[in-house]
Design a binder for these strands. Structure first.
Lengths: 253, 253
DNA sequence: ACATTAATCCATAGAATCATTGATAAAGCA
DNA sequence: TGCTTTATCAATGATTCTATGGATTAATGT
């Protein structure tokens, strides 16, 4: 009732707003997307995003102040990562709202994504079934560094630049399932498009690695954890829980 | 693969960022909170928020461009409302992240909320059970206008300013459950605090009206829909679905 | 101690955002 | 047609945000 504390609400909202503001920049969303693939040092993020080192550092600090990421030192580099699995959910919801309500977004998705692959993607649940039957080959089309930080069990890494040269390594008698950074990443769309033209039976996985991991499904890490790489805290693997995440991602320049 | 379309991702992220930016201002979050209570004309929002009319109009248009709200004309006034139930989820998640990751937020909640009522709130599911047994009295402590736009079935409206004068209307032999705009709104905390000091058995409902409605639970509207008031599109009432929404809100100045 | 690498700090110019004021448009009423 | 109510449009300074380049700090190795 007292007037004196009636601005507590305003202070709260100002804090909430600061979190939203931190997400309110294309470059910072791009960084969040990259961090959703795994923990990374600043310079790596700079090259992957095509932005200047100083610039990236500033953006990361802004994300840090907003509580969206955390950092730790390893030797002389500083490793950043998402602070919480809920951050992924937040960005997913943001993208979903934009996709539902902004015609511009739907137009871009139509032009640059659907045209490359208008088939229904494979669900996580279905992929798990097929993996048990050894029915499919899973390819991870993200850059090597992200693959090493963590990937689907048994997946082979075929980054965009190498796909065309390494077609011979891909078996022709089995179906291919490709995945990348998430539903707003073009890399898996492009890979599927290329593979289909070459006569492969290729499909996309719904969403990407971050959503798979966030659903608590099993992942493999090439760096045998000697470097102490940290993952997001998520629940353990329960096959019946093919959670209902939806997330985001797009190709780095 | 082509370089030409590699900026599709940037365009997408720029769109996503514009939605986040729209949420990146305390006043706009306040407006979203007010709109979560129901459809309202601009001037009403201006007085309820304590902001200037022109200012509010500008903010609403920004929210509109970002796809978070929609507007329609009724006579000479323009009614705004949330564009989608998912917008509520988005803001809820935003607040949740802030609450988890920002110490400042936890401190404010501790100082201004928990101190007024440290008891566990009543869950929606439990309230439904008790309503069937006519076991409790539900009071809605929001301003009259918001109450009229929609409220819990059988709730009585007791806005903050009138609570102290109308204590005699409240039965002393039954437990009181108070609710307001949401989990970040102090009004129900304050009401419960006042009532307890007067010897009532009072409890808070978890969250507030928007979350109740978003969960698909039954609501009552005092304006018998003659004005064509529109609500968010939500599922129909299923008692077993006491959904897991979590939302936001705080007291207007 | 010195040099090297990795990241942050600092200063600055250019751009965007915010609140306010006054003017304009749209709908209803006399 | 005037007149009122309601909201948007347009223009203005004050503030904040963004990207860049140079200086500084921290950790490592010689």
């Amino acid at each position: 009732m007292s007037i004196g504390e009636s601005n507590a609400g305003f202070l709260l909202f100002a804090q909430f707003a600061s979190v939203a503001q931190a997400m309110g920049h294309a470059h910072r969303l791009l960084l969040l997307q990259l961090l959703a693939q795994g923990e990374r040092p600043v310079e790596s993020l700079a090259t992957a995003s095509g932005l200047g080192l100083t610039n990236v550092s500033q953006h990361l600090q802004r994300l840090n102040r907003a509580g969206l990421v955390t950092s730790r030192r390893r030797g002389r580099q500083v490793l950043y990562r998402l602070s919480d699995a809920l951050v992924l959910t937040l960005v997913e919801t943001l993208c979903k709202v934009a996709e539902r309500r902004l015609g511009q977004v739907r137009a871009i998705l139509q032009d640059h994504f659907r045209n490359l692959d208008d088939l229904k993607p494979v669900s996580r649940r279905e992929l798990i079934q097929r993996l048990k039957r050894q029915d499919v080959v899973v390819i991870d089309v993200r850059p090597l560094e992200e693959f090493l930080a963590g990937h689907l069990p048994g997946a082979m890494n075929l980054p965009p630049g190498q796909l065309e040269q390494r077609l011979s390594e891909i078996p022709r008698d089995r179906e291919i399932v490709a995945y990348c950074r998430g539903p707003y990443c073009v890399m898996s769309y492009e890979a599927v498009h290329v593979l289909r033209r070459r006569g492969f039976k290729a499909l996309r996985l719904e969403d990407g690695y971050p959503e798979w991991q966030a659903a608590g499904l099993p992942v493999e890490s090439s760096s045998p954890n000697g470097d102490g790489t940290r993952r997001l805290p998520v629940g353990r693997y329960r096959p019946e829980v093919v959670a209902k995440a939806t997330s985001f991602t797009s190709r780095a320049p």
